[in-house]
Amino acid sequence: MIKINNLHKSFGDNQVLKGISEQINKGEVVSVIGPSGSGKSTFLRCINLLEQPTAGDILIDDQSITAADACVDKLRQKVGMVFQNFNLFPHKTVKQNITLAPVKLGVMNQQEADEEADKLLTQVGLKNKADAYPSSLSGGQKQRVAIARALAMKPDLMLFDEPTSALDPEMVGDVLDVMKSLAQDGMTMVIVTHEMGFARDVSDRVIFMDGGYIVEQGDPEALFSHPKEARTQEFLSKVLR
């Protein structure tokens, strides 16, 4: 579904991604782990072109998204993204947050979108919050709304950029549960996370990044229990205690 060839990204002189090649298949759940500054968020943000790659190529369903004539807005409709800081629209209600894009982009009419929003809010356990404003929600609730908002566009792929890093510990579980059921429903997901337990349970594959490279990747059980690379072992020994 996604093919990434030799992806490079620099910010000025700072080389963040130094050649990433990777393939993600339909229905696969891939977790990306690694220390801060390893480039994992940048890698994720390149997939929907929130960062423009410096070099390399990304193909989604065999179509290059980095080509000059690629339609970025069309691509993004099919790639949902969930941010660390939720980024809900504070001037719109929960329901309006969810229906804005599908209606504006002509994917649904307002009535269909409203029905879809109700369905999604039920799915994430927040049906009673439809008319609330984001400022009245807790972090965990905001993030679940953000997931519903991304799902409203019926994406083929969901990107999660440290979705639980800004949450109180007791809120993390609710968000992870929603993501877990999404994974079980067969959604293709790429998750940048520091939740090692979650990565191990839910992922089909785990990628360990450091210094702008993919150091090691594989089956979660194998990677967490028997990491091959010294750098992976060192990282895991620090985060898994």
Partner: peptide, 9 residues
């Protein structure tokens, strides 16, 4: 970023 990621221009 959030609005663009949804596909809005």
């Amino acid at each position: 970023e959030a609005a663009r990621s949804l596909g809005l221009s």
